[in-house]
Design a protein around this nucleic acid. Sequence first.
DNA 1: CTAATATGTCAAATATATTTTACATTTATA
DNA 2: TATAAATGTAAAATATATTTGACATATTAG
Lengths: 68, 68
Amino acid sequence: MKNNIHEQRKQMKLSQAELADLTQVTRQTINAIENNKYDPSLDLAFSIAHILKTPIEKLFIWEEPQND
Amino acid sequence: MKNNIHEQRKQMKLSQAELADLTQVTRQTINAIENNKYDPSLDLAFSIAHILKTPIEKLFIWEEPQND
DNA sequence: CTAATATGTCAAATATATTTTACATTTATA
DNA sequence: TATAAATGTAAAATATATTTGACATATTAG
C-alpha cells in the first residue's frame, strides 16, 4: 500500500524524528514506513494521520486485491 | 480501539465466516477482532471497511493517547 | 569547509497479528 | 426436539511490525 507521509510530513515541516516523537514510535519505524518496508499498525496509522492532519484514506492509498 | 464491525456486519446480513471469506482471512481472525482480542492490520482494516461499505474512521474508533 | 542535523539501513530481540486445527456453546431452523 | 449454522475460544506455529543500538551517507547551517 502506498502512502503520502513524506509529502505531508514535509508540509508540516517535521523531521522523521519529530514525527516519531509525536506518534510515540522510533525514528526507524517512521523511516521504514515512509520507504514502504512495511505498513504501520492500524493504531499507528491513525496516530500519524492525526498528527499530519490528513484523513487516513488520503494518507494511505489502499487498493483492493485484483483477482485471486 | 473500539470498532463497529459486529453492527455493520449484521446490517449487511453477513456471518463472521462470510466476512472472513470476503476479506480473505479466517473466521477466527474476524471473531477475534470483533471481540477486541487485537486490532486488524491496516490492510485488513481497509478491506473490512470496503466490504462493509463504511469509512474506516467510522468503523474503527481511535482515541488519541491521553497523557503519556 | 566543518559541524550539526536528517536520512538510510542492518541485525537481533521483542511484540503483535494471523493461521491452523480442534472442540464447546449458542442461536436459528426443519 | 433435533439438526444445522453461527459463534467463542485455545494452543502452537508462522508472519509481520516495532524497538534498540549502531553506523554510514546526505543535507543544511554556521
